[in-house]
């Protein structure tokens, strides 16, 4: 420790509190503590009354909060008062009436004394030698082997966490050539005429009869249908042939992290993802124009069937949703 420019004046002298010297002040403090504890008791009574006495659907109007549920509010306030004031009482008690002399305790270095350390090393060595740890290498090695192997079994047992392996499932959806587009919700087939220019529709595929739609299906099948004026498209001939009379269909599952991309701005023809603000240009096949997404939204080729309803003319030609290692993105 370097020399201090000013020497340690030591602990400041203890200043007595009012309650230490004035019995009246002490009495007052005692009464205050008691009052705090009594307030807590009142809180509990309010809690019990609210639980049994206030109907669960009782509403009450209060400024700032507005119309709120009286049962929940007074139950909570009762609990809050009952707990809070126990604490306040205890602390006030400790501060005003319990001894407030600061105490000094000595601190020792964490390190053990040298002789203790030496004794420890000696013990280890001695015990190790008696057990023959140094000599019996066969035992050591086989023990290591069996412990290592035993550790494998719980790992192996995690295998059935998933009955199936990904395979190419992540690249599959329920869209096939000829699958009808249905409104979501409502499950009604859609004709091109149902969509005005500037209109959107949330769409799911018609599943084979008897198959119930699950969330797993929706997580990959969800589709957004947008109609603009055909001359506004800025697409190559192939992609243009995937549209139908100005109607274009994109996977609604974001190519970034899988949120539902559905904020369509009719005025700018931009699609925005609300999770991370990737912005896609509908007229250029959902090209990314802002944000973290690195790939356009997959486009589904559509046309109409013999009855005039919109159908997929082919499956998606790439995996929908967020990227993964085996995804062929080229």
């Amino acid at each position: 420790m370097s020399l201090q420019p000013i020497q340690d004046p030591g602990l400041p002298t203890h200043v007595h509190r009012k309650a230490d010297t004035d019995p009246k002040a002490a009495k007052r403090a005692e009464q205050q503590v008691a009052l705090l504890f009594l307030t807590s008791a009142l809180g509990t009574i309010l809690f019990i009354f609210s639980y049994v006495g206030i109907p669960q659907d009782q509403l009450i109007f209060l400024p700032i909060l507005g119309t709120t549920n009286a049962h929940q509010l007074f139950l909570g306030l009762g609990l809050a008062i009952s707990l809070f004031f126990i604490g306040m009482g205890a602390v006030h008690w400790a501060k005003t009436l319990m001894p407030d002399h600061e105490v000094v305790d000595v601190r020792k270095e964490q390190r053990s004394k040298d002789e203790d350390r030496a004794a420890f090393v000696a013990t280890i060595k001695e015990q190790g030698a008696t057990a023959g740890l140094g000599r019996r290498t066969l035992i050591k090695r086989t023990l290591g082997l069996s412990l290592g192997l035993a550790g494998l079994s719980p790992l192996l047992m995690l295998r059935d966490c998933s009955a199936e392996l990904p395979g190419d499932e992540l690249a599959q959806t329920n869209w096939r050539a000829g699958t009808r587009l249905l409104t979501d919700p409502g499950d009604r087939p859609i004709k091109p005429g149902d969509l005005e220019v500037g209109a959107v529709a949330q769409v799911l595929p018609l599943l084979p009869a008897g198959r119930k739609r699950t969330l797993n299906d929706i997580a990959k099948d969800a589709l957004l249908l947008i109609r603009i004026r055909p001359e506004e498209f800025n697409l190559d001939t192939e992609r243009l042939s995937w549209t139908y009379q100005g109607i274009i269909a994109f996977s609604k599952i974001c190519s970034h992290m899988g949120c539902a991309v559905a904020l369509y701005e009719q005025s700018t023809k931009h699609l925005l993802c609300p999770c991370h603000q990737s912005t896609f240009d509908v007229t250029r096949a959902a090209k990314v124009i802002f944000g973290p997404a690195a790939r356009p939204l997959p486009q589904l080729p559509i046309s109409v069937d013999s009855e005039g309803y919109l159908v997929a003319s082919a499956p998606f030609n790439e995996a929908v949703g967020p990227s993964y290692w085996e995804r062929d993105s080229e």
Binding site: T183, G186, G193, G198, A199, A201, Q266, T268
Partner: peptide, 18 residues
Amino acid sequence: TGPQAMPVFGDKVITPAE
């Protein structure tokens, strides 16, 4: 009508009852 940035939700996509 789909004012400004809002798209149109036609009566076939979201029916009047809906």
